[in-house]
Amino acid sequence: MKKVGVECRNIRLSYGNTEVLKDINISIAPGEFFALLGPSGSGKSTLLRLIAGFNQHQHGQLLVDGRDISGVPPWDRNIGMVFQNYALWPHMTVWDNVAFGLVERKVPKAELRERVQAALELVGLADYAKRRPNHLSGGQQQRVALARTIVIEPQVLLLDEPLSNLDKKLRVQMRRELLALQRRLGITTIFVTHDQEEAMTTADRMAVLNHGVVQQLGSPANLFDFPSNRFVADFVGTMNVLEGNVRERNGGDIVLGVDGVGDLRLPVDNETLPTGRCAASFRPHTVVVEAAGAVGDARYTWLPGEILASEFLGEFTRYQIRIGTQQLTADQTHYAGLSKFPPGASVAVGIDPSQVRLLAA
């Protein structure tokens, strides 16, 4: 099967006076696993349905393999979609559910049998062909929905929150199976989710949407390490944010006067030296917590703090810490025998300047 790219060029979509998608520009490479990530109402599912042909944009172009398919009806797009609720026919067997699309396309019987059998074997359900959907687990129903979609050999596979109805353990298992299947088929895949962990563990690249606008596009690691704005920083993982004013610039460093805390000296790119008000942002796992008075690593900027609360989360303990008049979160790796800091304990908080990102306040 030929791998194809998908491109959205300046796409806008409105319902009446409500603009749902605003100048969407996304280019998805052939064979790429691409995620659309965002909160409810961000426009991600609307964009996915637009690519499928169920929604129609008023402006822009939608290209598949370089051809504008904006006016092409859904049944002529050769795009497969797996819905959140699987949409299986309850009165049909697994075999008949998977064969349905081929029957509608009037595929010869011998070819139909061969393709249905191959699709069921691909998702590990060859032994379940005679069962009905209500006799299957949630994960098995998900595999039937996938088999029914891939059996028609679509150029593009669309996944609309396909794991949201599964429990956590099964979601982890299914996203691994989903990624392995996509790699095996090499099919261009677009995956909609509001779960940043799902997006980051499966996608080659992803776009974060909010209010119908692409906030940032890139690899999961790039978005996590170098968020372009406060929304992306907060939505992709957890972020500490300390706002303040730039008080001094010296070569590649600035001194940020953090509200209620004091001065932080931070390295920045000379070409993007900020001025005025901005926010120092850093991830909880980059923060070090030591007992008050301990001699800290010179790589860190150390500030006095007080433990407000803690949560034991197994692999790590999450602390809420007051520094000055501000509060931040620190994640400390847990191992057997390590004692926790109690609420009210005085501590030294280490911030690694190399892990701080300066964002618009």
Rank of each mutant, 00 (worst) to 15 (best):
G5F: 05
V6P: 06
E7I: 09
C8S: 12
I11Q: 03
R12P: 00
R12F: 11
Y15Q: 12
L21I: 07
L21R: 11
I26R: 12
I26E: 03
S27H: 11
L36D: 05
G41T: 09
L48T: 06
Q56M: 03
Q58I: 01
Q61F: 02
L63C: 07
D68N: 15
D68I: 04
V72S: 02
W75C: 09
D76C: 01
D76S: 07
N78Y: 04
F83E: 05
H91T: 02
D96Q: 14
A99C: 08
E104K: 15
R105N: 07
R105A: 15
R113F: 04
V116A: 12
A118S: 14
Y128M: 12
K130S: 15
R132W: 01
R132K: 15
R132S: 08
G139N: 08
Q140F: 02
V144P: 00
R148N: 08
I152Y: 05
L157M: 10
L159E: 12
D160S: 10
P162I: 11
V172H: 04
E177Y: 05
L181K: 03
Q182V: 02
L185K: 05
L185S: 02
G186T: 06
G186D: 01
G186K: 07
I187G: 01
D195E: 01
D195N: 11
M200K: 06
M200H: 09
T201M: 13
T202H: 02
A203K: 06
D204A: 05
H211Q: 13
G212C: 13
A221L: 10
D234L: 00
V236D: 02
G237P: 14
M239W: 08
N240W: 05
N245L: 06
N245I: 07
R247I: 00
G251K: 14
G251F: 14
D253E: 12
V258A: 08
G262D: 09
V268N: 09
N270Y: 11
A279Y: 05
F282G: 05
R283S: 09
T286M: 00
V287C: 05
E290W: 01
A294W: 02
A294Y: 04
R299L: 14
T301I: 04
W302Y: 12
W302L: 03
E306F: 01
T317E: 03
T317R: 13
R318G: 00
Q327V: 10
A330P: 10
H334C: 00
A336E: 12
A336M: 04
L338R: 15
K340F: 11
P342I: 02
P343H: 02
G350V: 03
L358V: 10
